[in-house]
Design a protein around this nucleic acid. Sequence first.
DNA 1: CTGCATGCAAATCGTTTGCAGTTGA
DNA 2: TCAACTGCAAACGATTTGCATGCAG
Lengths: 134, 134
Amino acid sequence: MRMTNQRRIILQELRKVFSHPTAPEVYELVKHKLPNISLGTVYRNLEVLCDLGLIQKIDVAGTQKRFDGTVVDHYHVRCLSCSRIDDVPLEILHSLDTAARELSDYEVIKHRLEFLGLCPECKAKTDKSSARKC
Amino acid sequence: MRMTNQRRIILQELRKVFSHPTAPEVYELVKHKLPNISLGTVYRNLEVLCDLGLIQKIDVAGTQKRFDGTVVDHYHVRCLSCSRIDDVPLEILHSLDTAARELSDYEVIKHRLEFLGLCPECKAKTDKSSARKC
DNA sequence: CTGCATGCAAATCGTTTGCAGTTGA
DNA sequence: TCAACTGCAAACGATTTGCATGCAG
């Protein structure tokens, strides 16, 4: 593995933000520092950095993959309205795996859990609009 | 909503199988009955049937969406090796939502949980090949 | 009759890949 | 030096969409 300029900047920028950006979003972030970088390079490097355990890939359901500068395993909430993602400080529930192992004939190794709901901002908007309806 | 022949057959076929098929797989199933049906129609109808609550969309991480003729909410296990999906007879844990609601500033509504592991077949294969290594 | 639904093909979206030139160790 | 890495653009796989036609209500 070679620590190229591109790779270093991608890691740097990803560690600065808390927004769990998608690959194209990372690309936009990095372009401010390296205007000639290509999206392909961003994708390749995010993959490499994941493999090295320097960042984390959050591939939750249905949408684009997102990336997290933090390596510690944790759960996420996604806003159903604006797709914003935040961390949930709930410790990983290994007991779920144990339960599933007993209830299925699979060798259950891990699980993927994400919460869905409304972020504070979208919740406020919804409250307002339903109030207006009355 | 109009109950077209295509729509009826798609629902019928989906209720017959337990394999949690992807849209292209549903397309293959239905083609036996309706050889001229198009993949686009299958996609459109699966969407409509979901909206009507007649079937369920399982959009688990990273891969194609899958569809379930059952409407009752339940968890799934996915085989990391062959991507097969099965049901896990674990009751829905609403307590998780409560916990997440307390730990975040989101209005948590629901969660998505999927287990990952090895299905019996792939587990057997792995065991064999690791035994061979010794 | 009329507008929702269809088949078809082209378009889109996110991501991956092949290739020729570049660069860090 | 030289394999790993880059930028670029084309390829890809899943899904969506525009359009002219078809058919259920």
